[in-house]
Amino acid sequence: MNSLVYLRRMIINQKPARLDYTKGSETNSLYYERAGFEGSYADVSQKLRDIFEADSVEVVTDPDFSNVSSQRIFAPQAIASALAGYSFTPATRAELLSFTMRLPPLIVRLYPMQRYSFQDNGAYMKMHMQFQHNGVLRMQNYISQAENTRDEVVRLRVMMATYILGLIAPLNGGAQGSSQKPQETAKAATTSSAQPKAKKTSILSRIINRIRGL
């Protein structure tokens, strides 16, 4: 799920950037500046949804903003809007689950997402309570505790929002994405660099990636 990684980096770095993405045969761009995404609500929401499902993503820092509008949607608001009612194709779901399996033990930060009409704020609060209770959040547990398909979708949306906005971070150090050095061009890293152990989750993730590419 490279798109999540690069959206997170854009937001955490807090520097002007352009995210170029390709979904199917269409290539498009989303600009980020002054803590917000450029465009109208509808436009930004749709672009973010496309980015979630993009085939390839590339981030360009220090882009030219001369031809873009001055309208900005604050990042938490934009992410909340893009995720409102968002459901996944089986391919995206499988990819999100694979992504979740790679997340280490986490800390969860509390942020007033309800101010930005985050539809799944209740689930986010419960996730935070789980973290407070245990001192750590295992996202894998959080997702697998879903009671039904709808609940799983909600939990995956919470994972996406909190990850992208930097509200979750690794429990053991090196957690701060802000320490990321700005790069001229960040090419998408391959997800095949996951754990070398031939555990069942690793095997399933490899199969998922292969079948997506059929």
Binding site: V5, R102, L103, P104, A169, P170, G174, A175, Q176, G177, A189, S193, A194, Q195
Partner: peptide, 8 residues
């Protein structure tokens, strides 16, 4: 033993 270098 998570490999999270490219995630965070």
């Amino acid at each position: 033993d998570y490999d999270t270098e490219d995630l965070f």
